[in-house]
């Protein structure tokens, strides 16, 4: 089943929550609304026609150009995208689901944007979401154990955000 057909099924089931379909890319993707992501992934997993039993990857992308000169030509509004790569072992098809969230909750720098956790739908999402939290500072609401997975627990900031400042010093070790 290709992404257009998957999009058709999703649009039929969820209506307005399915926002966009992009097919001109090598990996076509479907943009959906963030608050419905748990229902949508559950549907993709459980529906007989789809059977997406495997979450290959869950990650995030920071759309921001920190360089002021280049920012004028930057074609996107600053935002974060969370990407879900799904595949089905039985039906041998795959798809990409994306959701878009603001970089900061209520535009207050420092407050993490919140999206629902899908760790209850796909078990592997547990660690993927911890990584996305560690690297991007996305708060996955409902996650069973949302703490840093790679960086030390006392690390400051979220390193893969484009406006991240490198540490000058960590526990007495000079950084720059």
């Amino acid at each position: 089943m290709n992404t257009e057909e998957i999009h058709g099924l999703l649009a039929e089931q969820f209506g307005d929550a399915i926002l966009e379909l992009k097919t001109e890319a090598i990996d076509p993707w479907i943009v959906v609304s963030a608050d419905k992501i748990v229902d949508i992934l559950t549907f993709l997993r459980d529906d007989e026609r789809l059977q997406f039993d495997h979450l290959n990857d869950l990650t995030a992308v920071d759309f921001l150009e920190p360089d002021e000169k280049k920012a004028k030509k930057f074609p996107y509004d600053p935002h974060l995208e969370i990407v879900y790569h799904l595949s089905s072992f039985g039906l041998k098809h795959r798809t990409v689901i994306k959701i878009s969230v603001p970089r900061w909750k209520n535009d207050e720098p420092g407050s993490h944007p919140e999206i629902p956790s899908v760790a209850g739908v796909f078990g592997i999402a547990d660690w993927h979401e911890r990584e996305a939290y560690d690297m991007f500072g996305i708060n996955f609401v409902g996650h069973p154990n949302l703490k840093r997975i790679l960086c030390p627990e006392d690390w400051e900031g979220h390193p893969l955000r484009k406006d991240y400042d490198f540490p000058l010093e960590y526990h007495g070790i000079r950084g720059m």
Binding site: C151, I173, R174, M176
Partner: peptide
């Protein structure tokens, strides 16, 4: 590398 010690002689 935000996480790499700039030479182990700092440690």
């Amino acid at each position: 590398g935000y996480h790499v010690v700039k030479g182990v002689d700092l440690v």
